[in-house]
């Protein structure tokens, strides 16, 4: 069977999705990145190999997410694509008439406006992570409950309290204050969800023409309270696709399928055995010019495979020489 592998390495989670030649989802893996992207890419490959039927032949592999270049070198990607495009392509595949795509992940949040099946506008959170999953994670941790529990308990709220969501630091002090006043935990939690939604809509969604159908994807779409808060704030129905958390990986797989169909070359995929190879990462300060860039290096058996982080392409060129 012909298959296409999409890998989405985000700041919080790593996702792998395998599609067959008809773009049907064959298999997917969802892991926490835990700050160790290489280990998790390898773990993902191991899992995928275990779960895939034996007759599968990987005809194309693509990486996306914030660690897409790193992942691309490790697996031998045929295509490295940014996550904004990957998410839009996946949403359009399942919902061809979608007009707004809301995506909230661990460290970033995006909005994509689609008209007649073509992306016309997008935005991504700027300097602050207040409207993202890490904001909720952090508050759940502070209240000593899991994020799943937060999601369920907030649903029970009847009189949500207003919490300033402009900044996580302010939100936290506001929350402490509301706790000390004796508000119910459920109401505070739902107030927090509303704050996140308000923050998202006034930051990322600022000036965007939000029209239904609206697709909500990304890890935060697991959270029922956020869906409710979004629906209430927008006054529109929110559709959460069944595989919302791996849409980036699915989009990457769709893109590489498209690319291989038009390009016609064979895949660069290094094989599932890459999961057992010992990669090393290190970093150093380049002294070639006064910029003193922090350059990250990926190496295998003492040989440098790739460099990142330089302002110029000096180190990237070094890696290109075999």
């Amino acid at each position: 069977m012909e298959t296409y592998l999409g890998i989405d390495v985000g700041s919080v989670t790593t996702k792998l999705a395998v599609l067959d030649e008809h773009d049907e989802l064959v298999n997917h893996v969802y892991l926490l990145t835990q700050g160790r992207p290489i280990d998790m890419i390898q773990e993902g490959l191991r899992e995928t190999r275990k779960q895939l039927p034996a007759d599968c032949d990987v005809c194309g592999v693509s990486t996306t997410g914030s660690a897409r270049y790193l992942a691309g070198v490790i697996v031998g990607a045929d295509l490295v694509k940014n996550e904004i495009t990957a998410h839009a392509v996946a949403a359009l595949h399942y919902f061809p008439d979608v007009r707004t795509i809301i995506e909230i992940g661990g460290q970033d949040s995006k909005i994509t406006i689609v008209r007649d099946g073509i992306v016309t506008d997008f935005a991504m959170n700027t300097v602050c992570a207040a409207g993202t999953g890490s904001f909720l994670d952090h508050q759940a941790l502070r209240l000593d409950m899991s994020i799943e529990e937060l999601s369920q308990r907030a649903l029970a709220s009847s009189a949500p309290v207003r919490i300033a969501g402009r900044c996580t630091v302010f939100a936290e002090s506001d929350m402490v204050h509301k706790q000390q006043m004796g508000h119910r935990v459920e109401d505070i939690l739902y107030g927090l969800c509303q704050a996140l939604v308000r923050n998202y809509l006034s930051n990322v969604g600022l000036g965007k023409d939000i029209q239904p159908p609206i697709i909500f994807q990304g890890g935060v779409a697991f959270n029922q309270s956020i869906i409710r808060a979004l629906q209430e704030e927008l006054g529109m129905e929110i559709i959460v696709p069944p595989h919302h958390e791996i849409m980036g990986a699915i989009g990457a797989a769709l893109l590489v399928h498209e690319e291989m169909a038009t390009g016609g070359s064979s895949s660069q995929f290094k094989g599932f055995d890459q999961s057992e190879v010992k990669y090393r990462t290190s970093s150093f300060e380049c002294k070639a010019c006064p910029n003193n860039c922090e350059v990250a290096r990926l190496s295998l058996n003492g040989k440098a495979l790739a460099h990142w982080g330089g302002r110029c392409d000096m180190w990237e060129r070094v890696a290109a020489i075999p």
Binding site: K81, T85, I118, V119, T120, M124
Partner: peptide
């Protein structure tokens, strides 16, 4: 520079696809 690069890539993709 990741944030800037992601936006630039997505912006160009959007234009190419259009």
């Amino acid at each position: 520079e990741t944030g800037v690069i992601t936006r630039l890539e997505a912006f160009l993709d959007m234009i190419h696809r259009r």
